[in-house]
Design a protein around this nucleic acid. Structure first.
Lengths: 206, 206, 206, 206
DNA sequence: TTATAATCGAGACGGTACGTCGAGTCTTAAC
DNA sequence: GTTAAGACTCGACGTACCGTCTCGATTATAA
């Protein structure tokens, strides 16, 4: 599997894979995609920047996208203090906070460029999509649903909801606007999405 | 502009552009993307399939994505009987109908493959995104908002809504699931999205 | 055919092949083989030195050896004043003169290196051998046999000889020594070969 | 030296070199060159076929050609009953016999392919050429000259000949024709070479 | 009605990157 | 200390397309 790597915690006789080459490749991939953009990214460029033979990349990753994906994985393993979503007891405020932070990230070219690259690769390659779902998508989705369940326990959320639908309702508008650049991505938009989703579209009964 | 083309209804002295080559190129592009997938699509392949010199493509389109985009435009001009969304007076039923139809389309490889290709090109290329927004995105969005405004007049929808947010709330979950393959795309899902968006996430009072 | 090239004397509508690229490639090949040796010669190196795309080489030549061969052909077309062998009426002197000149050439690294490279390619590749035979080998052999026939008319050579055998008898010892480096290649050796071949190995009858 | 190997008759404490690996490598090299041709031969292929690590080859041989050369040496040590050339008292018949046998060998692909490979390596690599000369070329040449000296003693050969020239005169035509494929290699050709060399090219005095 | 200039098909050109192969070096674990 | 195994860096392979650039050969106005 492309994203497998030698963990120090694993078996005694580690594979002969070079950890330093692995790190150099992932770092080079992440840096390069920012510098030259997604379409300017090439295996040859990554190898050369990383000071590594092309074969070493082909040996361990099946595609350019898989390298990029692992580069993200490596980064995301650094900042995993507390992966849980905020839970202050005020769902609307908490969601708005999270969505505003996401908006800020997506507006920052340092994240936009490589994330877009990865997203496109995932959209193109079903195998990569499956790996992504397993390693990042589902865990993140679980976190979101956990927060929603907490809200249900607090009576802030209806009990009869399909939480998968709810997650999409809240998060996909941002994703869609970002990817398609179909409109400005602002805090106001994030707030609007949260408020509208929570209150629904129908007039409130008096 | 890439998507400009000689309309018989335009000025008297039409350009010397060959209409038959144009159609052959767009048809070839659309057919090829289904056969060989997006990444297998090449200008060279389109030219050869269309029986056309490469220069004829480069002369009229700035990128592979622009060709693909025009191919879609050509198709979508065939089926434009009544572009309006259904309006039976029952918003929930109408939205569910439209979203179910979209689900069916997205599940059909004949649409999935070229649509995905086009979507990826748009996500990659801001210029193409702008053209897309102008030519297809905004008109479609206007149609959706028109239906929503009708619902507001009928008292089915709150008056104080940002309709751009509402459109995203209703349509982006499908888009997101489809593009990322993050879950099954079913009629039930479409129904769930519509119902949840309309009713909101909060417990109903009383 | 690899060695075909646009001749100004040929048909009116010349191919679109670039004569300047062709010359640059052949010159680069000839120069490079002297600088880096045969095994250091690469298509990539030739292309880069000639300022040409690799495909331009692959388009017109089937192999590295074919390029080298044409490089020789190009050179040999410069010095074609009178291709005939000397004929002073003294066969032994004429042959010795020719063989001594050959010895000098073979001892000159400027000729030895590329000639050796070409010879090895010909020995390896039967197709190239056939081309070589047709374009260079047989014409040269014809020249030699013409000189021998003249000697027969002059009574210097027996009438009942297979001239192909004679040509080999005279010229192959040099070739063999040169290629295998099985001994020093000197004027004395050349003289010895000529004298021994002419007089034969048997004791002269009294 | 590449062609050194542990002889059971040598010093008491033999080197730690694995004799079985050595034989496996040489056998694999000889077999492979027949199967895949010279240019298809690779160290990697030999190692894999021999069930041996690449390093084991690099440790003991300096080049692919050296391996091939030792493979020949190994074979030629099997058939060394009497290495002397036939000496029936009739030089012409004896030479014709030997040359005809050589012709047959060179026409047999089982010998042609690996011999050609080795010959090309020797022609390319002066160091290998020196080793070859010492181990195979000069002993064979000595044998030939021995037979010629015997003919001189019998009065069949002139006394004033440079035997190195004579050896080349008799044997190099075959070598040249074979390597360059410049003509058919037949018994008739062999006979012609012997007869012409013996009788010389000049008309016999009456 | 002709000439004339934009457009056409074709495809060669200099390039970049692909994914593969093998070279020769180095490291590991087994013996 | 040698071995089998195989990862490593490096460089070349031959192919696919890129986007640019000539080439005649249409071809449809404008003279």
């Amino acid at each position: 599997m492309p994203t497998q790597r030698p963990k120090s915690t694993s078996t005694a006789h580690a594979s002969r894979r070079s950890e330093s080459s692995r790190r150099a490749i992932l770092t080079a991939a992440f840096d390069l995609v920012q510098e030259v953009g997604y379409s300017g990214l090439s295996i040859e460029g990554i190898a050369s920047r990383a000071g590594v033979g092309k074969q070493t990349i082909y040996r361990w990753w099946p595609s350019k996208g898989a390298v990029l994906f692992d580069a993200f994985l490596m980064l995301s393993e650094g900042d995993d203090g507390d992966p849980a979503l905020p839970d202050t007891g005020d769902l609307q405020a908490d969601l708005a906070l999270v969505l505003r932070a996401t908006v800020d990230e997506l507006n920052d070219p340092r994240y936009d460029v490589p994330m877009r690259a990865l997203t496109l690769e995932i959209a193109r390659d079903p195998a990569l999509a499956a790996t992504y779902a397993e390693r990042l998508g589902e865990p993140m989705s679980a976190l979101k649903k956990e927060r929603l369940r907490s809200a249900q326990r607090a009576g802030e959320l209806r009990e009869d909801l399909d939480l998968d639908v709810v997650v999409d309702l809240v998060w996909s508008p941002l994703f869609s606007r970002w990817l398609q650049r179909s409109g400005p991505l602002t805090h106001a938009y994030a707030d609007g999405v949260v408020a509208t989703a929570l209150d629904g579209l129908r007039p409130r009964l008096r």
